[in-house]
Simulated scan of single mutants.
Amino acid sequence: MTHNQAIAFDMLPGTITAYLTAHRDRVIAAQLGLFAADATVVDEGHTHAGSSAIAAWMSHSASAYTYTITPIAAEQSGEGEGDYSVTQHLAGDFPGGTVDLRFRFTLRDGLIQRLVIEP
Rank of each mutant, 00 (worst) to 15 (best):
A62R: 08
G33V: 03
T68K: 13
A36D: 12
T87W: 03
G110M: 09
F103G: 01
S52M: 09
S63Y: 01
R26K: 15
Q88L: 11
A29S: 14
Y84G: 05
M58D: 03
P13S: 08
F94K: 05
Y65E: 07
G96S: 12
Y67T: 01
E44N: 10
L32I: 02
Y65P: 02
R102C: 10
A29C: 04
T98F: 07
H48Y: 15
G50A: 13
F103T: 03
A29G: 06
F105I: 02
F105C: 07
V86A: 12
H60C: 03
T66N: 07
V27R: 08
T70H: 14
T40Y: 09
A74D: 03
A91P: 01
Y84R: 09
H60V: 08
G33A: 10
D43I: 00
R26V: 01
S51R: 13
G92A: 14
L32Q: 12
A62S: 14
G78M: 08
A18I: 02
G97V: 07
D43M: 03
G45D: 08
G33W: 02
Y19S: 05
V41A: 06
G97A: 12
H46K: 08
H60S: 14
D38S: 13
I72H: 05
D83H: 15
T17G: 04
G97K: 11
A37N: 12
T106Q: 09
A22G: 01
T68R: 07
S52C: 11
S52N: 15
I112M: 06
V41R: 03
S77I: 11
A22C: 03
D38Y: 14
T70K: 15
A73G: 02
S85W: 13
A74M: 05
V42W: 07
L32V: 04
F35P: 01
P71F: 01
G110P: 11
A39S: 09
A37R: 10
